[in-house]
Amino acid sequence: MIELEGITKSFGSLQVLKGIDLTIAKGEIVSIVGPSGAGKTTLLQIMGTLDRPDSGRVVLNGTEVNRLNEKALSAFRNKEIGFVFQFHQLLPEFTALENVAIPALIRGESAGNARRKAMEMLELMGLQDRASHKPAELSGGEKQRVAVARALVNRPSAVLADEPSGSLDTQNKEELHRLFFDLRDRLGQTFVIVTHDEGLASKTDRTIHIIDGKIKKEEL
C-alpha cells in the first residue's frame, strides 16, 4: 500500500536519508524508531508528501506521488493521507467539530456533509458531547483524539503520526495507543507511527529501526 524505493534526502551537506526501501501493507500498524537525528521525521514527511526526496520513488495506494504536480499532490494528500502530530495543532478559534470538518471542507464537501462526517468521527472517538467545545476547553487526551478524528474524516488510505503520544500523561497515552489498534480493527486503517515510546513500538505489527539514515533491522 505504501512503497518506498531508494529514498535519499539531504539538507545542505548533511545526508539524512541514505537509500530507504520500505513496504507497508494495508491495515498494518508500523512503528518507526531510532535516536534523535536518525531521519525518522524526515522519512515520515516524505512518505506523507510534505517533502520530496532527492532521489527514489514513493508509491501510495498505487499512485507514484513523485510524478504529481503541486496542485495534484495537495489534492492527493488531502484525500489519501491523515496526519497526527505531537501537539495536536487544532485551530483554537474553532470548535472540535469545526476542526474535524476542515479536511472534508478542503476536499470540497458541502458544509452539511462535512459536519455530518465530523460528528461521526467524534462519536467514534467517544467525544460527541465535546463537539461544541473549543481546544482550550478540552483535556490533552481529548485534544489528541480530536486530532485523530480530523485525520480520519476523509477516510484516508494511511494515517501518519509523529510522536502522537509524546505530550500525554501515562493514562491518556495508553488510551491513545489502544485507540489506534481499535481503529485498525474497526476500519482497517493503516498507521505509520514515529515514536520514542518503547511500549507502543513493542505492540505494533512491525518496528522499523532507523539509524544514521538507514534501516538497520525489522522486528516482526
Rank of each mutant, 00 (worst) to 15 (best):
V194R: 01
V33Y: 10
G12T: 11
N69E: 06
L68W: 10
G112T: 09
L22F: 04
V146M: 06
E142K: 06
A131Y: 08
L160I: 15
E3D: 08
A131W: 03
A114P: 09
V100G: 11
D21N: 14
I211R: 09
G126T: 13
V192Q: 08
D205F: 03
D212Q: 08
Q171G: 01
H177T: 13
R77Q: 09
L124H: 05
Q144V: 14
L4S: 02
G12M: 09
D205G: 14
Q189D: 03
E120V: 09
H133C: 08
V194T: 04
L68C: 15
D169V: 10
I29M: 13
F87I: 09
S74Q: 14
Q189W: 04
F11Q: 02
L138E: 06
L60D: 02
E80F: 13
N154P: 08
E80R: 11
P35K: 13
K216R: 13
E120Q: 14
G188Y: 00
G112A: 06
K143S: 12
F87S: 14
V30D: 15
V148T: 08
I211P: 00
R57D: 11
H209S: 09
D54H: 03
E175R: 10
M121D: 04
F11W: 06
R57V: 05
G19N: 13
D54P: 00
K18L: 13
E219V: 14
I193C: 07
L138D: 05
A38N: 04
V16Q: 00
N78Q: 06
T41A: 04
L168K: 06
I208H: 03
I24M: 04
K79A: 09
A38C: 03
R115T: 07
R145C: 12
H177L: 03
K214R: 15
G39A: 10
N172R: 02
A201G: 05
V30Y: 10
L200W: 02
R67L: 12
A201R: 03
I46Y: 13
N78F: 01
S36C: 12
G166H: 01
D21R: 04
N99S: 14
L91K: 15
S157Q: 15
D21L: 07
N154D: 04
Q86Y: 02
F85Q: 06
F11P: 00
E123A: 11
G12K: 11
T190L: 13
E123Q: 14
Q189L: 13
D54T: 08
S74N: 12
I106S: 01
H196E: 06
V58M: 06
E174S: 14
F11A: 01
K214Y: 12
T8L: 12
D54M: 04
E123Y: 00
R107D: 11
P103K: 08
I208R: 04
L138C: 12
L160Q: 00
G12N: 02
A161F: 07
